[in-house]
């Protein structure tokens, strides 16, 4: 009986947390679409999330494309299809690897920082202070991050794709001898606008997941994750892990819907 009761308590606790998390997302959407928007904070966050992640995106994209060049050539040459290296690299990057890996980079770099910043503001009562001034913390802490990620992540994904395709070109064409015309020509034939839009939709939805999870975990530091520095540390770890898992799960559902 006590095991059943415990199970019930844990289930109710999880349901409650999911409810609070769902309400957090609904409130965020509400405040995103109602003025005023804190423009300065939005621009600052675009710089932080977008500009400061660029170098890592370029490096990750380049090396991912180069690995794809090697692995793709290795697999395709077994069937005498190495001419299709371009479409293989392009489609893999645009539809799958670009959105997912860019989202991972942004989660690791910006998402964790967002959770830690909001979490520290929560435990040092800065959010309470804001509320007592009659100000809405969502407008200052959540909405600018939400919009900044919506703007930045698809652009970072596009950058990742382009650099990745260039990385594949370096290995496939310059190192392994696939013709440059074949590499790009076949890519143009097989990659269409729907594939590009699939990548855009994915990166937009991944952006919402990142900002939702990371802001929520920071905002509720002390409520769901304990107090003090340890609470912020736990919140940050949970934000990153949960974002990664949700991104992969959501990626499966989106891929199956667009298949």
């Amino acid at each position: 009986m006590s095991i059943l009761r415990k199970l019930g308590e844990v289930s109710l606790d999880y349901l409650y947390r999911m409810g609070v998390m769902g309400m957090f997302l609904l409130k965020t959407f509400f405040y995103v679409f109602t003025p005023p928007l804190k423009i300065n904070r939005f621009v600052k966050q675009v710089h932080f999330i977008g500009f400061q992640s660029m170098l890592v995106i370029v490096l990750t994209g380049c090396f991912t494309g180069m690995v794809m060049g090697f692995q793709g050539y290795n697999s395709l040459s077994k069937f005498g299809s190495d001419a299709f290296l371009g479409p293989m690299v392009g489609l893999s990057l645009i539809k799958e690897l670009g959105p997912v890996l860019s989202a991972f980079v942004v989660t690791g770099m910006a998402g964790s920082a967002i959770t830690a910043e909001i979490g520290i503001m929560r435990i040092s009562e800065q959010i309470d202070a804001m509320e007592l001034m009659g100000l809405n913390p969502y407008r200052y802490l959540v909405v600018p991050n939400f919009l900044a990620i919506i703007v930045s992540l698809p652009l970072l994904t596009a950058l990742f794709d382009v650099i990745g395709i260039f990385g594949g070109y370096l290995v496939g064409v310059k190192l392994l001898g696939v013709g440059a015309g074949t590499y790009f020509g076949e890519m143009v034939s097989y990659v269409d606008m729907n594939d590009i839009m699939e990548g855009v939709y994915k990166s937009l939805s991944f952006g919402i997941i990142i900002v939702w999870v990371c802001c929520f975990k920071g905002y509720y530091t002390g409520v769901f994750t304990g107090f003090g520095a340890e609470g912020v540390s736990k919140a940050t770890i949970q934000a990153v892990v949960l974002s990664f898992v949700l991104i992969l799960v959501w990626d499966y559902f989106m891929t199956s819907l667009m298949f």
Partner: peptide, 18 residues
């Protein structure tokens, strides 16, 4: 919000925006 506009609160740690 209106009620809070008439309130001031000095937090134990100050709660200044760092």
């Amino acid at each position: 919000t209106t009620l809070r506009e008439g309130l001031g609160f000095l937090f134990q740690g100050g709660a200044l925006f760092d």
